[in-house]
Nucleic acid binder design. Structure first.
Lengths: 335, 335
DNA sequence: TATTTTATTGAAAGCGGTTTCATTTATTTG
DNA sequence: CAAATAAATGAAACCGCTTTCAATAAAATA
């Protein structure tokens, strides 16, 4: 690989000048600029990004830490991030946190050590305090899908409470009053918010919250299966089920089917997130849209604005969920 | 951030020695080693990875280029790669190629420019020649799910032909003789191999290949829908359908259902890849297992062995697919 | 035309490490 | 105990680029 020295030698100018040409500095005559560009082309020269980083104290890389790399949700998120970042000439260094505090901290430190300029974090296990502390550090970061009052400027999230509310309100509007709920792990902020919304909708319709109709699961298919099995075993009456995410909804649907419960005629089900495969379930899943792409893009804009001072983007910190009505919820005529 | 100079000053030894301690070089006395470690701890010193890269000409980062970042398939792949790489202290820089030759080349160059030490490529659009050329370059790379004779040492893949064969053979063994096939884009090597396997299975059972029962699609859900619609419109008789991947199979199942065709009683369907959600479809999809995690891990081992000379791993270049029997294929009694 | 200004350029000093080579100190060996 | 050998350390060069600062050349002003 050719270095700047060789370009300098071949073009007959100092490397300072070569550097200037390469970085579009003002005050370089057309003539020398041309000489340099010719040499660059002839030598197939490409600046060494490491050396450049060392000199500028900028790595042009942003670290992305997500709970998991697989799963329908994160894929869309990473895609959006990668496209936008690359278009800006930056790149993504990724790491997974696995929803475990130690592992998440480990991941964050790993990324910092790799001299990322900024971070995009989708973490749930790590404490608010840790993140608040991190914000006093020099490395800027955005938090996806998590709201912490003290550093709210760094948060880009969905209004999960509203999403939970909308989902249950939708069921209520369809005539349901006995609504079971499968939640995510309650120590996770988003899971907590979603169920709060659920309760608000119930309260608003004067429906008492029945703890028997709540099952705390894991946001995974397995949890949905377990939840539905639990409700069936409980012999509680319910005509609808709200799930805190689509994966659990698909698990619940599966178990319902195995137990001869028809969806939606015997039991309506609503999910949350609107991941791609909800459309291919049978029946197609009614759910709450989580505009993850938009949120991910906004996170990148935040980075571009705050770290790379690119343009003065408008940052929208909170996104609103909406209902995606499909087939898994049915109108229940009042008796 | 503290630098090596400060550690040197505080511990009272030269930075050469500090560097030695940090890199576990032999011939450093216990006493100085201790002094240095104390200073390191006191200053919360962490070596600057950029400077280190510049000096060693190693970035400890490997570039990962995949067609897409989303989709069930790539998620599993990235997860496996990230975990293994991080455990080895390396990191992944990711980029997407979007199954477009220009974009893939762009991505590869982007990664090279970012001074990755090695690359893991999952590309389909770029030509064999380009990759063969690249192999003469200095940057080592592994190719996932693609076999090119000239650089077969760099290829880690599934025996797609065998997979295609097994799928159709399985259908035939279940008594089917009128088998429709929805393939991926035929210019893609894996799609081509899979259908070759299909044809081999047909030939072996003395079934004539019927071009009317072939539909070339896009490996996406949409393609599966289109394929099934096409076959229905054609009014061709078929009792089973093999799809070149699971996403298309799910699309086909959906359209079948919408047209009152019962799966598997009216039509058996088999997929390919065994992505996570196949289990949650209704009926559960019978498919061909693509051990993507194992393949991804093997790719990392390849990199560790060939670029970082870690251990002398055994490299397995070709993996074998197996049938995962679930509910979507039914035995067809011969009349 | 002499004097300022301004536009171009180059030399050299970093950026924060690693590594070679020479030197000093500690150990062995004869 | 002197000489030879091995172990431990430091000085300085280097990795490839950016950037400050000073010097030179060109253009503008008086």
């Amino acid at each position: 690989m050719a270095t700047i020295y060789e370009v300098s030698a071949l073009s007959g100018v100092s490397k300072s000048t070569v550097s200037r040409v390469l970085n579009d500095h003002a005050n370089v005559s057309e003539k020398t600029k041309q000489k340099v560009m010719d040499a660059v082309k002839q030598l197939h020269y490409r600046p060494n990004s490491t050396a450049r980083s060392l000199a500028t104290n900028r790595s042009n890389s942003v670290g992305v830490l997500v709970s998991e790399l697989h799963g329908p949700f994160y894929g869309d998120m990473l895609t959006a991030i990668e496209i936008k970042l690359r278009a800006a000439g930056k790149h993504a260094i990724i790491a997974a946190g696995h929803s475990d505090a130690a592992s998440e901290i480990d991941g964050i430190e790993f990324l910092i050590e790799r001299s990322c300029d900024a971070l995009i974090l989708h973490v749930d296990a790590v404490s608010d305090e840790y993140l608040i502390g991190l914000s006093k550090n020099s490395i800027p970061f955005v938090l996806i899908n998590r709201y912490i009052e003290e550093i709210k400027e760094n948060c880009i999230c969905l209004d999960n409470e509203l999403g939970g509310y909308l989902a249950s309100k939708y069921l209520i509007d369809q005539g349901h009053r006995d609504i079971a709920y499968i939640s995510g792990p309650l120590w996770k902020k988003d899971a907590g918010d979603r169920i709060s919304g659920h309760k608000r909708a119930l309260a608003e319709a004067n429906i008492d919250f029945n703890a028997q109709l709540l099952f705390e699961a894991d946001f995974k298919v397995k949890g949905g299966c377990d939840g539905m099995s639990y409700f069936i075993a409980q012999k509680q009456k319910f005509t609808a089920l709200a799930c805190a995410n689509d994966e659990m909804a698909s698990g619940a649907m599966k178990v319902a089917r195995e137990n001869g419960i028809k969806v939606p005629s015997d039991c309506s089900i609503i999910g949350f997130d609107n991941v791609f495969f909800t459309e291919y379930l049978y029946p197609q899943l009614t759910t709450v849209n989580f505009p993850i792409k938009e949120i991910a893009l906004m996170a990148v804009r935040w980075i571009l604005k705050n770290e790379y001072k690119t343009k003065d983007f408008n940052i929208n910190n909170v996104f609103e969920p909406t209902i995606i009505a499909r087939e898994s919820v049915q109108y229940l005529p009042s008796k």
